[in-house]
């Protein structure tokens, strides 16, 4: 829709303050990198890069200059005479990005550009994209399912689910103040821990009952309403043998990652819990451990999965 390949049903789209609802794709001064690269198989790399510019009836020397410049930035100069089928995945990706750079657009659209690359190349291209952005300073809209890409590359993230916006914010905001359960569960790896809780008592006496973790007082802002809620705690906020709220559990799985260890624990009620530790102590499967956290680290969500604001504001 932003690119003008599909009709919009409602609202307006503006690029640099110019409403582009009725402009065809080519007049919107944007360029797009496709998931499948969509290079023209019958053209050489040079022609692939130059094709859009030729359609703009641009001066031949100017086309040459821009193509060479893009090839230099992306280090694909030796490949200019090749056809796309003679390129590796990463090279095709560069050419696809090159094709979008030469147009010097107002806006880049990236549609999951790295999802067809292998893990190593993906990390490398991610770094290159980040430096490309530093260099060009052109707005990029980047679609991805990979939260690492989202968190590392973005200045602002829009989390979408089934076409609806769940939250807009900086990577930090999304991580520290997820607006709802979906965002909380989506951002962060390993996944955030979620515990169902009920509320007992009334007024200032209200308490949160978490089963395995026992009961403890609710923050004073939540004096009424919300009989049921979900408590979420990040794996790194869970500590061994400390924290004001504690529970015992049996270790089910230990994932040793070198710099950190991810431990999966089953609580007595059967609720799974994950915690992350950088300490070198060894955990064995079947071992009983005592885990805990501080209520300051918890995120509370109401029965509808919306974040319960406790004196904080969300930038939307």
């Amino acid at each position: 829709m932003i690119a003008g390949l599909e009709e919009i049903t409602d609202g307006t789209i503006a690029i640099n303050g110019r409403v582009v609802n009725d402009l065809p794709a080519s007049k919107r001064e944007l360029s797009m990198v496709f998931q499948s690269y969509a290079l023209y198989p019958h053209m050489t790399v040079r022609k692939n890069l130059a094709f859009g510019l030729q359609n703009l009836k641009m001066d031949r020397a100017e086309i040459e200059r821009r193509v060479d410049e893009a090839a230099r930035i992306l280090q694909i100069e030796p490949l200019l005479h090749r056809k796309p089928r003679q390129l590796s995945g990463g090279q095709k990706q560069r050419v696809a990005i090159g094709r979008s750079i030469v147009r010097e657009p107002q806006l880049f659209l990236f549609d999951e550009p790295l999802s067809n690359l292998d893990a190593e190349l993906r990390v490398q291209m991610r770094v290159e994209l980040a430096s490309l952005y530093e260099r060009l300073k052109t707005t990029m809209i980047y679609v991805t399912h990979d939260q690492v890409e989202a968190m590392t590359l973005a200045t602002r993230i829009v989390v979408l689910r089934a076409g609806r916006i769940e939250q807009v914010g900086t990577p930090e905001e999304l991580y520290t103040k997820p607006a709802n359960l979906f965002v909380a569960g989506f951002i962060g790896s390993p996944k955030i821990n979620m515990f169902d809780a009920t509320v007992t008592g009334t007024g200032a006496d209200r308490k949160l009952n978490l089963g395995d973790f026992g009961t403890y007082p609710l923050p004073p802002e939540l004096a009424e309403g919300h009989e049921r809620m979900t408590v979420c705690v990040r794996p790194e906020a869970i500590k061994l043998d400390s924290g004001s709220v504690q529970a015992e559990g049996r270790v089910r799985l230990v994932e040793y990652l070198g710099s950190e260890t991810i431990v999966h624990v089953d609580l007595p009620s059967g609720t799974p819990l994950i915690f992350q530790t950088h300490q070198m102590e060894k955990h064995r499967v079947g071992e009983v451990v005592r885990v805990g956290y501080d209520p300051a680290d918890q995120h509370l969500f109401d029965a509808d999965g919306q974040r319960l604001m406790l004196g904080e504001t969300l930038v939307a």
Binding site: A25, L30, M32, Y40, N55, R99
Partner: peptide, 27 residues
Amino acid sequence: IPRELDEAAQIDGCSSFKIYWAVILPL
């Protein structure tokens, strides 16, 4: 022929006829 090629050509400023002539036919 993948539709993305048409879309890429569209962004590259091709008319429907140009897409036919420069992309679809050679392929």
